[in-house]
Protein backbone atom coordinates (compact mmCIF):
# COMPACT_ATOMS: atom_id res chain seq x y z
CA UNK A 1 0.00 0.00 0.00
CA UNK A 2 2.60 2.50 1.17
CA UNK A 3 5.07 1.19 -1.43
CA UNK A 4 2.48 1.67 -4.15
CA UNK A 5 1.87 5.23 -3.04
CA UNK A 6 5.60 6.00 -3.11
CA UNK A 7 5.90 4.56 -6.62
CA UNK A 8 2.92 6.61 -7.71
CA UNK A 9 4.55 9.81 -6.45
CA UNK A 10 7.81 8.95 -8.22
CA UNK A 11 6.00 8.18 -11.44
CA UNK A 12 4.17 11.50 -11.24
CA UNK A 13 7.45 13.33 -10.57
CA UNK A 14 9.08 11.65 -13.59
CA UNK A 15 6.10 12.53 -15.75
CA UNK A 16 6.16 16.15 -14.61
CA UNK A 17 9.86 16.32 -15.46
CA UNK A 18 9.14 14.83 -18.89
CA UNK A 19 6.42 17.37 -19.61
CA UNK A 20 8.77 20.20 -18.62
CA UNK A 21 11.48 18.82 -20.92
CA UNK A 22 8.99 18.66 -23.77
CA UNK A 23 7.96 22.23 -23.06
CA UNK A 24 11.36 23.30 -24.36
CA UNK A 25 11.41 23.65 -28.11
CA UNK A 26 13.55 20.71 -29.25
CA UNK A 27 15.21 22.40 -32.17
CA UNK A 28 16.42 25.27 -30.07
CA UNK A 29 18.26 22.75 -27.93
CA UNK A 30 19.94 21.28 -30.95
CA UNK A 31 20.95 24.72 -32.10
CA UNK A 32 22.61 25.23 -28.75
CA UNK A 33 24.54 22.00 -29.12
CA UNK A 34 25.77 23.02 -32.51
CA UNK A 35 27.37 26.12 -31.01
CA UNK A 36 31.04 25.73 -31.93
CA UNK A 37 32.10 27.04 -28.51
CA UNK A 38 31.04 23.73 -26.98
CA UNK A 39 33.56 22.03 -29.24
CA UNK A 40 31.49 18.93 -29.85
CA UNK A 41 32.47 16.59 -32.63
CA UNK A 42 29.89 15.88 -35.37
CA UNK A 43 29.68 12.36 -34.02
CA UNK A 44 28.68 13.59 -30.58
CA UNK A 45 26.09 15.92 -32.06
CA UNK A 46 24.66 12.99 -33.97
CA UNK A 47 24.37 11.03 -30.74
CA UNK A 48 22.57 13.90 -29.04
CA UNK A 49 20.28 14.31 -32.03
CA UNK A 50 19.47 10.61 -31.94
CA UNK A 51 18.59 10.88 -28.24
CA UNK A 52 16.22 13.76 -28.70
CA UNK A 53 14.75 12.40 -31.95
CA UNK A 54 13.95 9.10 -30.27
CA UNK A 55 11.89 11.19 -27.86
CA UNK A 56 8.63 9.76 -26.67
CA UNK A 57 7.31 9.45 -23.16
CA UNK A 58 8.26 5.84 -22.52
CA UNK A 59 11.75 6.34 -23.89
CA UNK A 60 12.46 9.31 -21.64
CA UNK A 61 10.96 7.93 -18.43
CA UNK A 62 12.67 4.56 -18.90
CA UNK A 63 15.81 6.58 -19.48
CA UNK A 64 15.34 8.27 -16.09
CA UNK A 65 15.04 4.86 -14.47
CA UNK A 66 18.35 3.78 -16.01
CA UNK A 67 19.94 7.04 -14.96
CA UNK A 68 19.93 8.41 -18.50
CA UNK A 69 18.87 12.04 -18.21
CA UNK A 70 19.95 13.25 -21.65
CA UNK A 71 22.65 15.80 -22.36
CA UNK A 72 23.72 18.97 -20.64
CA UNK A 73 22.88 22.01 -22.73
CA UNK A 74 25.77 23.81 -21.12
CA UNK A 75 28.62 21.41 -21.87
CA UNK A 76 27.15 18.85 -24.22
CA UNK A 77 28.23 16.00 -21.95
CA UNK A 78 25.73 13.43 -20.72
CA UNK A 79 23.90 14.70 -17.61
CA UNK A 80 24.68 11.50 -15.76
CA UNK A 81 28.40 12.13 -16.13
CA UNK A 82 28.11 15.56 -14.58
CA UNK A 83 25.95 14.23 -11.75
CA UNK A 84 28.40 11.43 -11.04
CA UNK A 85 31.21 13.95 -10.66
CA UNK A 86 29.42 15.92 -7.97
CA UNK A 87 27.59 13.19 -6.14
CA UNK A 88 30.37 11.84 -3.88
CA UNK A 89 31.24 15.33 -2.61
CA UNK A 90 27.62 16.15 -1.84
CA UNK A 91 26.96 12.76 -0.27
CA UNK A 92 29.88 13.29 2.10
CA UNK A 93 28.71 16.76 3.03
CA UNK A 94 25.04 15.78 3.44
CA UNK A 95 25.73 12.66 5.49
CA UNK A 96 27.99 14.49 7.91
CA UNK A 97 25.53 17.37 8.19
CA UNK A 98 22.61 15.03 8.84
CA UNK A 99 24.46 13.20 11.60
CA UNK A 100 25.49 16.48 13.19
CA UNK A 101 21.95 17.87 12.90
CA UNK A 102 20.48 14.85 14.66
CA UNK A 103 23.11 15.05 17.41
CA UNK A 104 22.43 18.75 17.91
CA UNK A 105 18.67 18.19 17.98
CA UNK A 106 18.84 15.33 20.48
CA UNK A 107 21.16 17.34 22.68
CA UNK A 108 18.89 20.38 22.70
CA UNK A 109 15.64 18.47 23.22
CA UNK A 110 16.87 16.18 25.98
CA UNK A 111 18.68 18.98 27.78
CA UNK A 112 15.48 21.04 27.69
CA UNK A 113 13.50 18.10 29.04
CA UNK A 114 16.01 17.57 31.86
CA UNK A 115 16.71 21.05 33.07
CA UNK A 116 13.80 23.25 33.98
CA UNK A 117 16.12 26.23 34.49
CA UNK A 118 17.66 26.25 31.01
CA UNK A 119 14.48 25.08 29.34
CA UNK A 120 13.29 28.46 28.09
CA UNK A 121 16.65 29.33 26.58
CA UNK A 122 17.15 25.90 25.03
CA UNK A 123 13.71 25.84 23.43
CA UNK A 124 14.38 29.24 21.83
CA UNK A 125 17.46 27.86 20.07
CA UNK A 126 15.62 25.95 17.31
CA UNK A 127 13.49 28.99 16.40
CA UNK A 128 16.69 30.99 16.05
CA UNK A 129 18.36 28.27 13.97
CA UNK A 130 15.41 28.10 11.62
CA UNK A 131 15.45 31.88 11.10
CA UNK A 132 19.06 32.11 9.99
CA UNK A 133 19.70 32.30 6.24
CA UNK A 134 22.12 29.47 5.47
CA UNK A 135 24.21 31.59 3.09
CA UNK A 136 24.65 34.24 5.76
CA UNK A 137 25.57 31.66 8.38
CA UNK A 138 28.23 30.27 6.06
CA UNK A 139 29.69 33.73 5.48
CA UNK A 140 29.61 34.44 9.20
CA UNK A 141 31.42 31.21 9.98
CA UNK A 142 34.12 31.96 7.40
CA UNK A 143 34.50 35.41 8.85
CA UNK A 144 34.82 34.26 12.45
CA UNK A 145 36.73 31.01 12.13
CA UNK A 146 38.88 31.72 9.07
CA UNK A 147 39.54 35.45 9.16
CA UNK A 148 39.23 36.39 12.83
CA UNK A 149 40.41 33.34 14.67
CA UNK A 150 42.37 31.76 11.84
CA UNK A 151 41.30 28.30 12.97
CA UNK A 152 40.26 27.00 9.56
CA UNK A 153 42.25 27.91 6.45
CA UNK A 154 40.26 29.63 3.72
CA UNK A 155 42.06 27.79 0.94
CA UNK A 156 43.79 24.45 1.23
CA UNK A 157 43.86 22.57 4.50
CA UNK A 158 43.00 18.94 5.04
CA UNK A 159 39.77 17.43 3.85
CA UNK A 160 38.34 17.40 7.35
CA UNK A 161 39.23 21.06 7.81
CA UNK A 162 37.48 21.88 4.57
CA UNK A 163 34.38 20.01 5.66
CA UNK A 164 33.91 21.49 9.13
CA UNK A 165 32.33 24.84 8.23
CA UNK A 166 30.12 23.64 5.35
CA UNK A 167 28.82 20.78 7.49
CA UNK A 168 27.99 23.18 10.29
CA UNK A 169 26.27 25.57 7.87
CA UNK A 170 24.13 22.80 6.45
CA UNK A 171 23.41 21.13 9.80
CA UNK A 172 22.17 24.13 11.80
CA UNK A 173 18.94 24.88 9.89
CA UNK A 174 18.17 21.17 9.54
CA UNK A 175 18.60 20.46 13.24
CA UNK A 176 15.91 23.01 14.11
CA UNK A 177 12.74 21.17 13.03
CA UNK A 178 14.08 17.88 14.41
CA UNK A 179 14.80 19.50 17.77
CA UNK A 180 11.40 21.19 17.83
CA UNK A 181 9.46 18.04 17.09
CA UNK A 182 11.53 15.92 19.47
CA UNK A 183 11.13 18.44 22.32
CA UNK A 184 7.40 18.73 21.68
CA UNK A 185 6.93 14.95 21.51
CA UNK A 186 8.86 14.47 24.73
CA UNK A 187 6.61 17.03 26.45
CA UNK A 188 3.52 15.48 24.98
CA UNK A 189 4.45 11.93 25.99
CA UNK A 190 5.20 13.18 29.51
CA UNK A 191 1.56 14.26 29.85
CA UNK A 192 0.23 10.83 28.94
CA UNK A 193 -1.62 8.89 31.63
CA UNK A 194 0.89 6.03 31.73
CA UNK A 195 3.63 8.33 33.00
CA UNK A 196 2.21 8.88 36.52
CA UNK A 197 1.50 5.15 36.64
CA UNK A 198 5.20 4.41 36.11
CA UNK A 199 6.06 7.10 38.65
CA UNK A 200 3.72 5.40 41.11
CA UNK A 201 5.81 2.24 40.76
CA UNK A 202 8.68 4.24 42.22
CA UNK A 203 10.48 5.21 39.03
CA UNK A 204 12.63 8.35 38.88
CA UNK A 205 12.20 11.03 36.23
CA UNK A 206 15.26 9.92 34.30
CA UNK A 207 14.07 6.31 34.43
CA UNK A 208 10.75 7.44 32.92
CA UNK A 209 12.50 9.60 30.33
CA UNK A 210 14.90 6.96 29.07
CA UNK A 211 12.84 3.80 29.41
CA UNK A 212 9.39 5.06 28.46
CA UNK A 213 9.16 8.54 27.05
CA UNK A 214 12.11 8.54 24.62
CA UNK A 215 10.87 5.47 22.77
CA UNK A 216 7.38 6.90 22.42
CA UNK A 217 8.72 10.23 21.15
CA UNK A 218 10.81 8.57 18.45
CA UNK A 219 8.26 8.01 15.64
CA UNK A 220 7.26 11.67 15.09
CA UNK A 221 10.92 12.66 15.29
CA UNK A 222 11.88 10.08 12.71
CA UNK A 223 9.14 11.36 10.42
CA UNK A 224 10.42 14.90 10.52
CA UNK A 225 14.02 13.71 10.16
CA UNK A 226 12.95 11.96 6.97
CA UNK A 227 11.31 15.13 5.70
CA UNK A 228 14.55 17.09 6.19
CA UNK A 229 16.29 14.97 3.56
CA UNK A 230 14.89 17.20 0.87
CA UNK A 231 16.28 20.22 2.68
CA UNK A 232 19.70 18.55 2.80
CA UNK A 233 19.86 18.53 -0.98
CA UNK A 234 18.43 22.04 -1.34
CA UNK A 235 20.72 23.31 1.40
CA UNK A 236 23.75 21.92 -0.39
CA UNK A 237 23.04 24.32 -3.28
CA UNK A 238 23.63 27.27 -0.98
CA UNK A 239 26.40 25.71 1.08
CA UNK A 240 28.43 24.53 -1.89
CA UNK A 241 28.07 27.91 -3.57
CA UNK A 242 29.22 29.80 -0.48
CA UNK A 243 32.16 27.50 0.17
CA UNK A 244 33.02 26.93 -3.49
CA UNK A 245 32.75 23.16 -3.28
CA UNK A 246 32.14 21.17 -6.46
CA UNK A 247 29.13 19.02 -5.78
CA UNK A 248 25.59 18.48 -7.00
CA UNK A 249 24.51 21.72 -5.32
CA UNK A 250 27.05 23.80 -7.19
CA UNK A 251 26.10 21.98 -10.38
CA UNK A 252 22.49 22.98 -9.79
CA UNK A 253 23.40 26.61 -9.33
CA UNK A 254 25.45 26.57 -12.54
CA UNK A 255 22.65 24.82 -14.40
CA UNK A 256 20.14 27.52 -13.49
CA UNK A 257 22.59 30.23 -14.52
CA UNK A 258 23.17 28.54 -17.87
CA UNK A 259 19.48 27.74 -18.44
CA UNK A 260 20.59 24.11 -18.50
CA UNK A 261 17.16 22.55 -18.00
CA UNK A 262 18.11 18.85 -18.47
CA UNK A 263 20.65 19.08 -15.66
CA UNK A 264 18.28 20.87 -13.29
CA UNK A 265 15.50 18.37 -13.97
CA UNK A 266 17.89 15.51 -13.33
CA UNK A 267 18.75 17.02 -9.96
CA UNK A 268 15.08 17.52 -9.15
CA UNK A 269 14.22 13.94 -10.09
CA UNK A 270 17.17 12.70 -8.05
CA UNK A 271 16.12 14.76 -5.04
CA UNK A 272 12.52 13.57 -5.29
CA UNK A 273 13.68 9.96 -5.57
CA UNK A 274 15.92 10.21 -2.51
CA UNK A 275 13.15 11.96 -0.61
CA UNK A 276 10.48 9.43 -1.49
CA UNK A 277 12.74 6.45 -0.79
CA UNK A 278 13.92 7.79 2.58
CA UNK A 279 10.37 8.53 3.67
CA UNK A 280 9.20 5.15 2.47
CA UNK A 281 11.94 3.61 4.60
CA UNK A 282 10.79 5.65 7.60
CA UNK A 283 7.25 4.39 7.14
CA UNK A 284 8.43 0.82 6.87
CA UNK A 285 10.43 1.15 10.08
CA UNK A 286 7.43 2.51 12.00
CA UNK A 287 5.82 -0.84 12.89
CA UNK A 288 9.10 -1.93 14.48
CA UNK A 289 9.03 1.09 16.78
CA UNK A 290 5.32 1.03 17.47
CA UNK A 291 3.80 -2.45 17.69
CA UNK A 292 0.32 -0.96 17.31
CA UNK A 293 1.10 -0.36 13.64
CA UNK A 294 2.27 -3.91 12.99
CA UNK A 295 -0.17 -6.25 11.35
Amino acid sequence: MRVGQALLVLWAAFTAAYILLQAMPGDSILIKFQNPELGLSPQQIAEIRAYYDAGGYLHTVLGFLRGDFGYSVDTGTPVLERLAEGLPETAKLATAAFVLAVLLAVLIAFAASHSSRLRGVLLAVPSLFISVPAFWLGILLIQVFSFRLGLVPVIGGSEIQQLILPVLTLAVPISAPIAQVLARSLDQVFTQPFVPVVAAKGASRSWILWRHVARNALPPTLTVAGLTFGELIAGSVVTETVFGRNGVGRLTEQAVNAQDTPVLLAVVVLAATVFVLVNLLVDLVFPVLDPRLAR
Binding site: V9, E231, I233, A234, V238, A271, F275
Partner: peptide, 12 residues
Protein backbone atom coordinates in the same frame (compact mmCIF):
# COMPACT_ATOMS: atom_id res chain seq x y z
CA UNK B 1 4.73 15.20 -5.67
CA UNK B 2 5.22 18.90 -4.96
CA UNK B 3 6.27 18.07 -1.42
CA UNK B 4 8.80 15.50 -2.57
CA UNK B 5 10.81 18.23 -4.28
CA UNK B 6 12.65 20.51 -1.84
CA UNK B 7 11.36 24.09 -1.85
CA UNK B 8 14.51 25.66 -3.22
CA UNK B 9 14.77 23.20 -6.13
CA UNK B 10 11.11 23.75 -6.94
CA UNK B 11 11.71 27.48 -6.94
CA UNK B 12 14.75 27.04 -9.20
Amino acid sequence: VLLSVPGLLLAL
